[in-house]
Simulated assay, not measured.
Amino acid sequence: MLNSLDIAKPPSATRVVVAMSGGVDSSVVAGLMAEQGYDVVGVTLQLYDHGAAIHRKGACCAGQDIHDARRVAERLGIPHYVLDYEERFRKAVIDRFAQSYADGETPIPCIDCNRHVKFTDLLETARDLGADALATGHYVSSRTSASGRRALFQPADADRDQSYFLFATTPDQLDLLRFPLGTMTKPETRDHARRFGLAIADKADSQDICFVPTGRYTSIVEKLKPEAAEAGDIVHVDGRVLGRHEGVMRFTVGQRRGIGIAASEPLYVVGLDATRRQVIVGPREALATHAVALRDFNWLGDAPLAEGETLACFAKVRSTRPPRPARLRLVDGEVEIELLDGEDGVAPGQACVLYDGAEGMARVLGGGFIRRRQPVAAARSAAALQATI
């Protein structure tokens, strides 16, 4: 008989390591697991900084948050360990974050944190502790699919959906991971925190870029990658040089405000050329994207992808956008996603996550980071040329 975590053991014989960040969500997960009689061990990762982030509202995994996690563990009566992952976090997340901006991309550091630290190093620690499961406070769901492996799904609360940030989770990792909040809303989670008597019940949610103590990412990027702050030209898509900028790191595709030039028409950042240190601008229609090529692709479907295969799916190119109709193609080992309705402001470095549906606890099929984009205008030109051949 399976317990509530789909493990064939009684809860008392099932060890669950809970990743405790010091926030409400992971604290409630620890409380729920302890309440259900599991053998719970709380683990908190010291990821960065002992100074500036200690009292900064919205930080996580440092200073006050570690103290909060320790207090929650004491309240719940579970063992709690703090592991120093600061060096690992710097190399796997912060350095990669800075390099991505220097390359003219717009990175998502919390995805790197999940795939390189929390779901790799922490998962190994959980195994070393003899854990049957590693539970986290993410709003996402998992259950066994037709293949017999666990699959990843959107949560019941669409407003808290974090599946976009977890596309890189591998099948082997999913077999050990559990997400107890996948069926809950945030208000329900806070109600549980109050029921457990946790002092952090009304604590504010953490921010995505938790390691930026001043809230200005450019200071970190400039320190680690000075070349990202080198001046260059602001160039119109028609080739005209319109002005100068103080570093490609200060711009992202889709940006309109703060470009620093005067023009008779609204202009948007439509591309960044880090090699030439150019910020490329143009009218809104130049933002429309027809297709994207992905790197670091992770596939979570039941059957492996075949070369030349085309798969209908739904693609999400920003965390705040809904999944839209798309087609996946595997061409010469490279994954290409055709965006059937087009998308605006698609930025290299962002994630493109694939689902089997557009709404309501859809399954996550996989995803990757956007390596390059194909504008709609270019696609139409190519189609017109093909028609004349």
Score class of each variant (00 low, 15 high):
V279M: 08
A286R: 05
M1V: 10
A347L: 01
A377P: 08
T289L: 07
L294V: 07
F369Y: 14
V364K: 00
S264V: 13
T144R: 03
A59L: 02
G368S: 01
E105P: 00
L123M: 15
G271N: 04
R277C: 11
R373L: 09
F167V: 04
Q386M: 14
R75D: 06
A262P: 01
D159A: 15
I54M: 05
L152Y: 10
M184C: 00
P79H: 15
D296S: 15
G58P: 09
I220C: 04
G260W: 10
C61Y: 15
Y85I: 04
W299F: 04
A133R: 08
P107F: 00
N298E: 06
V72P: 15
R372Y: 11
E265C: 04
E188L: 06
L300D: 05
Q162M: 06
D208P: 07
R75S: 02
E124R: 10
D161N: 00
R70A: 15
L365D: 02
R71Y: 11
A315R: 03
P325C: 03
R56W: 02
R88I: 14
A312Q: 13
G308W: 12
I259T: 10
H80S: 01
K9V: 04
N3E: 12
R150Q: 07
G368C: 00
L267H: 01
H67Y: 12
S219E: 15
R329M: 13
M184K: 07
T44H: 06
V270N: 10
A199T: 14
L177H: 05
D302N: 03
R70I: 08
H245L: 09
L134I: 02
D238E: 12
L385V: 06
D205W: 09
H138D: 08
R257M: 09
P213N: 02
S21N: 05
G360N: 15
A102S: 07
G301H: 09
A387M: 01
G51D: 12
P283A: 15
G357N: 06
I261L: 11
D191E: 10
R160G: 04
R295W: 14
R160E: 06
I209V: 02
G301W: 13
